[in-house]
Write a protein that binds this DNA or RNA. Structure first.
Lengths: 326, 326
DNA sequence: GCAAAACATGGAAACTGTTCCATGTTTTGC
DNA sequence: GCAAAACATGGAACAGTTTCCATGTTTTGC
């Protein structure tokens, strides 16, 4: 592979001049530039990005650490993050942790050893002490002291779900979802605010008897047996807010198998935006979060961090998506 | 950030010795090793991967260029690729081309400028001339001269679909799908073999009047209007093989809206494995391809290429997945 | 016409590792 | 006891860029 020295020698100029041509920086006489460009074409010279990274001490790669990119919402989020970063010349490294803290540690280490310039962190594990807070890190749906974060307005989402169900005349409410995922059950993510907002709003409207089911979703899937049990235990529930569309879909399926109808007998609202991939003959009503807006917010934060500009926490609005289940 | 020189100085040894300790290579006396390790801990030294890449001329990053990682099958494939690469110390850069050749070019360029060690290429565009065939590239579902490739046994899949529909007593067959995607309609990917296998098998069984619909799927979605039109044009079709589950789902939805029943009146087989995310009350019968097996095959090829070992094209078996539509 | 500003260029240092090679010390084997 | 093998260590070259700085030339303005 030819290097910058080969170009310089062949063009009869200094390497600094070649560098200036490549980067279009500093002063270069028109004829000199053309001469250098001609040589570059001839010997098919391509600047070595590793060497460039070496001197610049940055390599324009961002790591996205997340549990599992095959989950619909995460997949969409990573897609838009990649699009957005690409616009700014950054590349995306995808790091599926599969919720394993050991893998998260290895990926977080890439910040310290200069493998990546920045990290987008989406985790349910207790990794606070492992984060290098002197480097660019942005956290999604989770607060870490001293780490800028982006999240959907989960609280508002909970409120909106409650308001909608109240408006539709529901009397007995249930929240189903998982507040404490990950390796440390004590870890509280921002997702909890979906439940909090839901309960707060209902309380404000004088409803206090709310069934809060904190079922550990594990791989984001609710077991059918468990839901069936729940439904038979709380027969009078007629308004359900599920922490995700996946959870909502499982709930809906079981309700219908039990003979009740959705939305006639029980109304169900999920969370994510109703793009759920589960097999239902209907679309799930849902509190939608926009992967595109979130990606933009995350990337603007990342880019600001990389350029030593000030950053702010960002809360992204959610919207009610009316489907067939309310 | 401390560097290897700082460690050497503080430990009172040469940098070569520190390097040997870090890499556990060559001879180092036990006491020296311990002394160095102690200093490394104390000053929290982490070797700079960029510098390491510089001397080694490789950085253990693989790029996966694909149209869109949010599509279910591609998403799963990339997930397993990441898992597999991670096991071998490689990281995955995800490169959504959105079918744009301009973006593919930029990403392919990363091979030449040493940004990545290898590329996994999944494209429908005419990029043959842009591939640096002297470097590690593996192609999925597409043949390029001189580039090792991995593909599902698409031909066999087509045959299996035909056999299944014949076995179930279907008389009039239709294939629906898109042979020529991408920017150059002349590009033929291996996916074409699904149609070819389907037709060949039917021909062998004496069926020659086959409706082959080559509808440009674009973003892998079939328009409802178009399907409706088709269904009214070919009323007597009772056995359909769709190029993907997404296409199958669209077809099924329209058939049912038109008053016919699936599978009673029309039987439908898709392709991918029936994990489709579309809203149907039933599971799609499908020719399944295993993202996990494919990922393993791709990665073994990549790793062999990176280590100058011989590689072979690999055809991965498919299997019939019986759902509710046959 | 001349000083100042702008333009043009190249050498060398810096970035941070790995590894070859030279040198020196121990251990081994008989 | 001595040669050979194994162990141990450090200096320096090298990987391929960018950029500072020094030097020199041309243009500008009055």
């Amino acid at each position: 592979m030819p290097n910058i020295k080969d170009v310089a020698k062949k063009a009869g100029v200094g390497i600094a001049t070649v560098s200036r041509v490549i980067n279009d920086s500093g002063y270069v006489k028109k004829e000199t530039r053309e001469k250098v460009e001609k040589v570059i074409m001839e010997i098919e010279y391509v600047p070595n990005e590793i060497a460039r990274s070496m001197t610049l001490q940055k390599n324009k790669i961002v790591a996205f650490i997340l549990p599992n990119s095959t989950h619909l919402f995460f997949g969409e989020l990573s897609y838009f993050v990649e699009q957005e970063l690409f616009e700014h010349g950054y590349k995306l490294m995808i790091c599926n942790s599969s919720e394993q803290i050991a893998k998260e540690i290895i990926y977080l280490e890439m910040l310290k050893n200069n493998r990546v310039d920045a990290v987008i962190l989406l985790t349910n594990n207790d990794v606070e002490s492992l984060i290098d807070k002197n480097r660019p890190v942005v956290s999604f749906d989770r607060r870490f002291e001293g780490v800028p974060y982006v999240a959907s307005d989960n609280y508002k989402g909970g409120v909106m779900a409650a308001e909608k169900l109240l408006e539709l005349g529901c009397k007995k409410f249930m929240f189903i979802g998982d507040d404490a995922q990950g390796d440390a059950s004590s870890v509280i993510t921002e997702v909890t605010n979906r439940r909090v907002g839901f309960n707060d709003c209902l309380n404000e409207h004088g409803v206090s008897d709310i069934v809060n089911i904190e079922y550990p979703l594990g791989d984001y899937i609710v077991s059918a047996d468990y839901v069936r049990e729940l439904m038979s235990e709380y027969k009078d529930v007629d308004g359900i807010f599920a922490i995700s569309d996946a959870a909502a879909a499982a709930v809906i399926e079981e309700i219908e198998l039990s003979g009740k109808r959705v939305p006639e007998d029980v109304k169900v609202i999920g969370f994510d935006g109703g793009r759920s991939f589960l097999n239902l003959g209907k679309k799930i009503s849902s509190i939608g979060q926009s992967p595109e807006l979130i990606a933009k917010a995350i990337c603007s934060t990342i880019l600001n961090l990389c350029n030593n500009k000030p950053v702010y926490d960002q809360i992204i609005p959610v919207y009610f998506f009316g489907g067939d289940t309310t």
